[in-house]
Design a protein around this nucleic acid. Structure first.
Lengths: 252, 252
DNA sequence: GTAGAACTTGACGTAGCGTCAAGGTCAAGC
DNA sequence: GCTTGACCTTGACGCTACGTCAAGTTCTAC
């Protein structure tokens, strides 16, 4: 009393290709192979297949299923392990959803402001809003789980610190100081310390390659006008970049 | 002012292999290629790379990222679409977690009872519990989202119906009736109607291959002693299987 | 005998790189 | 000028669990 490969596939609700695969990986060999090479399956195989499909629907991988069916791993134990992995994935997904949501918000806001700029012209208030947006984007770029966990007052303090740094950079750039001057290097040090406050970035992570990160960030300030604006335009950004590079190469 | 492939990889916090891959798929070609074939990248490329990595961290696929960077898809729109997919995944995961949790519970309970049987012997009360466990397992095998959504009274009603069916099958088998007798066929009809009440199975799904499912289930009853016990042992299970097959082939 | 359905093995494709493998290039030290 | 070691190149397999042709063989029914 046995079935052909298509018959057992229909009985169990799967495909013949899947059965051939299970044969290939040794998970479910046919119970009999005809002289013509055809695969035939009996009731025992059907039940085994049904158990396989059940565990598969729960999300277990084929090797794990093989272990369970071989009795090497208790079913409960295997599922416990799998459950832990599933919860991990849930965490990861939840964080990603939060990140994407906030990014949509930030991007949407940024685009609105840009559109407004083009339609209504330019004034100081809007400029300040835009700068704040950009700082938000910068902070986001650097590491976002952190930003969403902040309280309002913390966020305000951070913004104040950020703006002070931007003002000082702009002033230093306009004073004509050299990127390797003591003044600029002090600012670079402050900048790096500021970055260090952002967990999730190389700067805020023990063992991270801070030097490379700082240099890369400096290049971004120069190349992207959205950030350059925070440092007094492209000339200012170039100054910041050079100062950061000198500092990073000497001290990090 | 450009960097080698390793340099830019470090600056952006990724690997040279990734950069070569992005070159291969056309996502980020090097800004310059030396006479020696070496890839060199400039600031523009660095910024593009940083945007790529940012979007990648949000979970977007490389083709989607390419669309966004090419301006073919608005960033916000792309992220909205991605967000929908993420929520879908969250749903799926949540359902899987619930399924796995309940399976662990069921399996854990079953193993305890088995252990108890071997240690303490066998008595009617325990036998009944075991049967209930098995019915639970059967119901689970057939479709589990449904089972967890039931109220206690619904579950009791279901169990009563299940037990009645099992009793009637056993009685018919012991009466010596033939699988194709009218009596057995009436029971088979009841059995299928009972199965139809379980959403998520072919029997409970419009368009499902009910015949194949019913025949496969019958085979399982015979081959797996855990289920055979519910139909009065292996002889009873064989009777049930044959009756179901006759019914399915004639009516489904 | 022949058409058509079912079966076989073999091999590519999937997402995004990690990881050898084999060989050319470059900078530094002797 | 030669060696060493670091860095670069292309090429190709591996991973998950099969879906999807492709080409050839076998069974079944008329």
């Amino acid at each position: 009393m046995d079935w052909s490969i298509q018959e057992i596939a229909k009985l169990a609700g799967t495909t013949s290709r899947t059965l051939r695969h299970y044969d290939d990986v040794g998970l479910l060999p046919p119970s009999r192979i005809g002289g013509n090479g055809y695969r035939y399956y009996d009731r025992t195989a059907l039940v085994r297949l049904q158990r396989i499909l059940l565990l598969r629907d729960l999300g277990l991988g084929l090797p794990a299923i093989a272990d369970v069916l071989a009795g090497q791993t208790g079913e409960a134990r295997a599922l416990e392990g799998h459950l832990a992995w599933l919860r991990h994935e849930q965490d990861r997904l939840a964080r990603q959803v939060a990140s994407v949501e906030r990014t949509i918000e930030a991007v949407g806001g940024g685009e609105e402001i840009m559109a407004k700029d083009m339609l209504d012209g330019f004034d100081h208030t809007e400029y300040r809003e835009e700068v704040e947006e950009r700082w938000g984007a910068d902070a986001y770029t650097a590491g976002d789980r952190w930003w969403r966990g902040m309280r309002d007052d913390e966020r305000a303090a951070w913004k104040e610190r950020s703006e002070a740094l931007g003002r000082d950079w702009t002033a230093a750039a306009e004073s004509g100081a050299a990127p390797d001057s003591a003044e600029a290097q002090v600012l670079a040090k402050r900048h790096v310390e500021w970055l260090t406050g952002i967990p999730g970035t190389p700067a805020g992570t023990p063992g991270g390659d801070v030097a490379a990160y700082v240099i890369g960030l400096g290049e971004m300030y120069v190349a992207d006008p959205r950030f350059a604006a925070n440092y007094g335009g492209e000339r200012g950004a170039t100054f910041v970049r050079d100062a950061l590079r000198v500092y990073a190469e000497a001290n990090l």
